[in-house]
Amino acid sequence: MSAQVLASGWTDSSSLGYPVLFGGVLLGSLVPVVPTGPLLSVAAAVAMTTDRLDIAVVLLLAVLAAFVGDVVTFSVARFGGPSAVRWMTRGQHADRLTEVREQFRVHGWQIVVVGRLVPAGRIPVLVAAGALAYPWRRLLPASLAAATLWAVAYALLGVVSGGIADSPLVAVGIATALVLAVGLVTNLVARRRRSRR
């Protein structure tokens, strides 16, 4: 890939563009108002059906933006002081807090990874980890692994849709439908598990 192709992805207003992808994923990682998974899937579908974006760069930027957003979210909770901890733990009994701390001590890595992959799970997990002073040396590799798995999963939806259709518009439609289907199945599974408990 030439520098000219990479530069055009940042400056070409007719393409989705790398800055829109990076900024959207970063913003959505900080404030859950941007649907980051569908954004990544659409970018991957565009990369597969046009020469405007490179799939490797799309994946790299998505991982980087998700990772930075997760670290910032954790940092705010970690350094928010007693007020952040009080906000996080309001209404919780001391026994429950001790149990959560123990779960993070034993399974923290897995909790961070699963929190990134489960819809609406990332921010509560990161805020809880920060409030409970989860160690940086464990959080950073877990968060990087989680961001990578998340990016690969959503990019694959875009790659599949781009492989099915040659038209960028049709590929984007298929990617959106796949993301919605995955989200629906994930929510149904989570709801069924909650009802069993």
Rank of each mutant, 00 (worst) to 15 (best):
S15H: 06
Y154F: 11
G91F: 09
A65I: 01
L64E: 07
R138G: 10
A3N: 07
G162F: 00
L180Y: 01
V159S: 00
L132Y: 11
A181S: 08
M88A: 14
L16A: 05
A120Y: 13
L61F: 06
A65Q: 06
Q103D: 12
R197L: 14
V58Y: 02
L61Y: 01
P35E: 10
A142N: 05
A65R: 00
R52G: 13
A190R: 12
D166V: 03
S75A: 14
L184F: 15
R116G: 03
G115Y: 06
Y134C: 02
V159K: 00
W136L: 13
L140G: 08
V33P: 03
G115T: 09
A133R: 15
P35Q: 14
V127H: 07
M88S: 03
P119L: 12
S8G: 00
L117G: 04
A181E: 04
L53Y: 12
Q110K: 14
A190Q: 05
G28L: 13
G23L: 06
P32D: 10
L97V: 15
V127K: 04
L126T: 01
A56Y: 05
V58G: 04
G162E: 09
R101P: 02
V172P: 00
A131C: 15
T148K: 06
Y18F: 03
V42K: 06
P135S: 09
